[in-house]
Every structure is written in structure tokens, then in C-alpha cells.
Amino acid sequence: MTGAKRGDILQNSMTYGLFTGAFVMHYGAEKIGILVIPAGPGNTERQINLMRDFGTTMLHITPSYALYVASVIYDKGIDPRRDLKLKRAYLGAEPYSEETRKKIEDMLGIDIYNCYGLTEMNGPGVGFECKYKEGLHIWEDNFLMEVINPETGEPIPDGEIGELVLTTLNREAMPLIRYRTRDLTKIISEPCKCGRTHRRISRILGRSDDMFIVKGVNIFPQQIEQVLMSIKGVAQNYQIVLESYDEMTVKVEIDRELFDGKIERLIRMKDEIVDKIRSATMVKPKVELLEPGTLPISEGKAKRVIDNRTI
């Protein structure tokens, strides 16, 4: 579908472990005779060495990390077109824009294909782009797809944006019926130039609930709230600010009544917040302590998550 074939070498820079992303791609690639380098994320120096030593032709990587790796490749004075054998990359696990795709494609001289999936549907590969890169084909022989209005639950016509709802058709042990993904997209029903008849969806535009994803981990603001409310010295008001896909900042107001003038206690409290959020969510946050009254006071439904990330 994207030209990958026996003899290709896939460097899999997704997280192995409890995240389904790396494994599904790994087994799928092996099935068609592709050599897989289970690199995992991080250690950028080594990623680049692996690309050179093994002659990596394909990458499976998150968009934010791909951007970083590309910039390090440039900083090291490596010309990807001359020194590396990269042909294509599969990007998923985070929403990203068309501009980001073009930028990484230009930097590395490769083709990038968007990949969609979710753990509840076995991971990546629920939808995949073909060589025309005009939306993701959903494997409709495997999943029944609908798009609904997230407020009313009613189906909406193809081409309009709503929440993607999926039903598994071939899964035996744990079928899921009309599973609400909370991912916002639209169905593209026009036939694709590639000739496949499976309908496509647009790239994911956002979410219909307040769950957010950092470092590939699903996080609900309530998890953060539970931690904060369990710590003495923290006031009621807080905010989660997202500037990138691998970092979250938690802003917390301190409790005026419990302030005792000791900076050591504030430092300990801040460390406690970091540790407890990390054990609750698996993501280490940045924590900022604020003066009471700094954060906007909520009128009705509080806006806890400020997502400044661009899609």
C-alpha cells in the first residue's frame, strides 16, 4: 500500500512494552519479510547510528520525535539523502499537521504515511494511508465505522466532522460494539485514486472529551485532580498546559492558609506532586506553584486543560 516489501529494513522507534504501537507494526512487518530493528524511542545518537549501520529504509516513529531526530541528523552534518537509505516513515500515536509531515519529508527526503489506531482496537493499523496520502483507509472488512454527533449520539452524514465509532467484525475474544473512540474526524466516501474501495477518514482533528495524550499515554484530568486534592498545601484551582506531545505542565495554586514561610516545604510539596502524578499517569510532569488567585476562576465547567499543541 505504501511500497514496503520484503528486503526493507524497518527501524521501530515506538515504545515497546505496554504500548501496542510498536508490537503491531513489528509483527506485521515480519510477516511480509521485513527486517525489524526494535530500537524503541530515545537515545537519538544510537538511532542515527542504527540507521547508518543497518541501512534502515523505513521508520515507525511519533511525529514529535521524528522532528527531533531529523534536526539532530542535520546538526551532525549528515545528509540524509546521501548518507542514509531512508525511503519512508510511518507516523502515528499523536495528531500532527500536514505542514509537519511536509517539513519532515523535506528534511529527510522521504515519504511519510499517516497511521491511525487505538489500543482498544488492537493498536495501530485501524486506518492507513496509501501512496496518495489523502486520508486514511479504514479496513472496513475488519471494522464497521460510523461518525456520530458526540453530543446527541446520532449518526451524521459522510463528510461532516464528528466522533468516530468503531465495531470490530473479526475479533473473537473481546468484540467491541459501537465503541466510541472520542476521536474527531470525517468520513471520505469518494473512491480513492489508488483503487481501494475501503472508505477513508481524514486525519484526526482532536478529541470530543477532555482526555489528552502525552508521550502516547491516555490521561484524564481527573487523575491529576485526584493527586492534587490528596496533597496538603495545594489549593483547589489547577490547570494542565500542553505545549508539546511529550510534556505536560501542571500549574497549581498553593493554599494561602497552609503557607508557613518555609521554602523547603514548598520544594518538598512540589516534588511530591511530581512523584504522585508520575505514579498515577506514568508521565513525569513539570509542576509550577502559583500564588492563589492567579488562575482564572471557573464559571461553570472549569477549563482544566489548555492544549496549545498545533495539529
Partner: peptide, 11 residues
């Protein structure tokens, strides 16, 4: 003034 990463105490 004692300050650390992001906040401090003025006495």
C-alpha cells in the same frame, strides 16, 4: 529573597 525554580519566598 530565597528563590528556586519558578517561585520564591520574600522575607
Amino acid at each position: 529573597i530565597t528563590s528556586t525554580n519558578g517561585f520564591g519566598v520574600i522575607k
